[in-house]
Amino acid sequence: MNKWVWVGLAISLAVAAVLSPFASPWPDGLERVAEDLGFDELASEIPALASPIPDYLVPGISSEGLATSLAGIIGTILVFGIALGLAKVVGERRG
């Protein structure tokens, strides 16, 4: 893998680690509409599956900003790895 791959990955990691604690806590478009139109209470309180890092906060870390940054770094690396693997599979199939 050449240099620009690492540059791109570094930019992504910087976004996930540095900017994520500053993300707006306001509800997103769908959450806002659900609240305004009164169907937000339909959302399941109990998730169908327990996630290891719920709500982008690594458990056990008291600083919320750090917990979010770490979640961002883990997710970015995970997604990078899976997408890279998928690209190899899809590429090899017809390669």
Binding site: V5, G8, S12, I77, A87
Partner: peptide, 13 residues
């Protein structure tokens, strides 16, 4: 192949 990894990583972030 690497571009797909980077694009996905950036989009997630």
């Amino acid at each position: 192949v690497p571009l797909m990894g980077v694009a996905a990583a950036f989009i997630f972030a």
